[in-house]
Amino acid sequence: MIAGHFGLAAGVKAKEPAVPLWALMLATSWLDVVFVPLFLTGVETIEKAPDATGPYGADIIHANYTHSLFGAIVLSLVFGFVARRFWGDRAGVVLGLVAFSHWVLDLLVHRGDLPILIGNVGHLPTLGFGLWRYPAVSATLELLLVLGGAWLYWRAARATAEAAGGAQRARADLSAALILIFGLGTLAADLSGFLS
């Protein structure tokens, strides 16, 4: 799941307008941002799921540090604390929660590969409801998150522009349209395997 995370961040912006959108987008991807260097150095790995039928959601991801439950909590706390220094307590809490929302959404789609403890210490049962086994369902969920998030953002951006006199109405429309285009483009790229 990639586009769904962006959709959620856009929806949160509508409810927490004082938090910068770019920071919300970074927060929602934070676990994956940290994952990339660990993947490139071989610390965390990806293998193809034997039951996968296409490129979308076809992976079993061994992200035992960044995507373990406790790892996600630690990374989210770090993001929230750093954000708090720039934008205050409320934004810090919001951005920390958005960072952790990544793990919650991943829990829905991953094929039971999310450990509980960092490094999968103790080899406790791994988590994941496995919606990726049903690509039409998980892709629809992502689509709804993108459409819902872009719509909520557009409503809030329009209202903000109107309250300020309406001069920024076109910018509000453009911003919402870009979220929609990037979100749908990301989903299309993910479905085609371009982002794998």
């Binding site: 770019w22 720039f86 522009a161 790229a189």
Partner: peptide, 30 residues
């Protein structure tokens, strides 16, 4: 890597356009 490029573009392009809107400012740190 394509994912990171996608994320970077998303943050920069959408972030710049969004930042020009008259959103309320975050609370100030004391």
């Amino acid at each position: 890597m394509a994912y990171l490029i996608e994320l970077f573009l998303f943050i920069v392009v959408v972030g710049i356009v969004d930042a020009g809107l008259p959103w309320p400012r975050p609370e100030k740190r004391q």
